[in-house]
Design a binder for these strands. Structure first.
Lengths: 287, 287
DNA sequence: GAATCCTGCAAATTATTTTCTTGATACGTT
DNA sequence: AACGTATCAAGAAAATAATTTGCAGGATTC
């Protein structure tokens, strides 16, 4: 658990002196991470021992341990608790977006249910045919990404972002197949219906979505991704990066699971691409 | 500049004692970041003052400053200089992928040419029609992502991953249009040809690609993304996350540039999606 | 052989933590 | 309601630990 979260959670239980310290740390991270205990104490108008106690309360060994913990999560977590910068200077916008993306990955990692991921990859690896569903800009990208990654491993897979097709495919699927669907909100009713149909036909179903959402509940295995989406309407993107990472993890696990077969297929595709380019082998799969 | 890079660069100029310290820090980061100067000195079999001198040489104020710097880049940079873990345990695979993705974002940010990004977004914002090109799994995704993001801002945009179409479109484009193309390797010869055609017709061209590559050289404005792609053939993904972030930044800047218009269009699309769902406004654009 | 640089020792300084004490607040008892 | 007790916060001072500086011996290089 990271120190920022701990600080937020403990906030209520802290004494007023400790709260002053927390304030300073949260608001002027740069200062806090470089300051000595005396400087920090002075700025918070408390005594050094109080700072030590504050660190201990937060679960750190010592003040320097606290600083390390702080610096450690800072790069990713720093902006998470701060209001989004209002600046529209290109450099700030860039930094903002990148930090958010890193945050999303950070939070994804923290909340990742490894056993669900493992189950999902096992089913995918054993499927005779895989149907990857998702609609709208984001989830349809995830679906085609799944197709993209899995066909290279020698698996049979098709992606669809078309609700009618999804329903028909779900109805046509067999128990030896797997249906995997993605929905950022978890409230894609048509996807839920496709899952229902599949489950009636005993087709294994996997959802990539928010936990406890309708989509999550409709699927047999749910790899849940719970991230707070920023509320700037221009930027609904960072969550998707987390989804992409999930796909990446899934595909990698599937690859390791069916290794011999995958290596061969991959090599063949790569060969084809390379010779078609300029004979330079540096080029990796799928420009 | 981060401490890991500095350490790598200074490596040759360090004395043997200092090299021993660097070795320990690089190989056992966890230890280094938690150790006191005495412990670290003992492990490297040098005296504490040598450690202090080592830190100074690396441009740090003091040992504790060094530790903070270390902890700071660590979360992202730690694994970058370490051989990739060989473990295929799901938790390790997940961590590996996420760390790599964060690294990619980190390196992207470090190498980002803000003025190029700004130029690119200005052109996009002023275009009468935008052609977004890219082929293969990754770049075609980037192209459609561009379409996805830009049409919401009320811009006219089409994406194509088909080389023949790309050539025809490039030939048909007008000087008031913009052609934007992506290529991870920078060696997509057909995309180069499309750029050439466009430039002949005085159509502004933007490339998202590796700097100094054929594609980069063919375009008028290049937003360069230079990342070392890991060499595990199963995972060519992290670079793409960086590309997505670039698209995100571009789209955001364009949005800010044409704000009034964009807000209206966005709201309309959103309205449409929301009413079509379950009336819950929490749902953000483009599931 | 001189100069430079590395390196450790010991002392000095600085930082951090512990201990002890005071003051405040809350709670229970009369 | 008033008093006493318990509990906790917080600082002062002392103790400890960590870090840095100055210096000198030794190695290496030119």
């Amino acid at each position: 658990m990271d120190i920022f979260t701990t600080m937020q959670e403990e906030r209520g239980r802290l004494s007023q002196s400790e709260n002053r310290i927390a304030d300073i740390v949260l608001n002027d991270f740069e200062f806090a991470v470089n300051a000595s205990i005396v400087e920090l104490a002075a700025k918070a108008d408390v005594s050094p021992p109080t700072v030590t106690r504050f660190c201990r309360r937060l679960g750190c060994e010592s003040f320097s341990d606290f600083k390390v913990q702080l610096a450690r999560t800072a790069y990713v977590g720093m902006r998470y608790f701060k209001p989004e910068s209002k600046s529209i200077a290109p450099a700030d916008v860039a930094q903002d977006i990148i930090t958010k993306a890193q945050n999303a990955l950070f939070l994804l990692h923290r909340g990742l249910d490894i056993s669900a991921i493992e189950q999902a990859s096992n089913r995918l690896a054993g499927a005779e045919m895989i149907y990857a569903f998702g609609s709208g800009g984001n989830s349809s990208m995830i679906a085609s990404e799944l197709q993209n990654r899995l066909f290279r491993l020698g698996l049979r897979v098709t992606a669809s972002s078309d609700h009618s097709m999804q329903l028909m495919m779900a109805a046509a699927a067999k128990p030896t197949d797997v249906l995997i669907g993605s929905s950022l909100s978890g409230r894609n009713a048509e996807l839920v219906r496709a899952f229902m149909l599949a489950r009636e036909a005993k087709v294994p179903t996997i959802a990539l979505t928010q936990s406890q959402s309708p989509v999550a509940l409709a699927a047999e295995v749910t790899v849940s991704v719970d991230l707070p989406e920023g509320n700037n309407i221009y930027r609904p993107t960072s969550t998707r990066i987390a989804y992409l990472a999930v796909v990446d993890i899934l595909a990698s696990l599937v690859a390791y699971r069916i290794q011999p077969q995958a290596t061969v297929t991959l090599r063949r595709i790569k060969q084809q691409l390379v010779t078609h380019r300029d004979g330079d082998d540096r080029q990796l799969l799928g420009d």
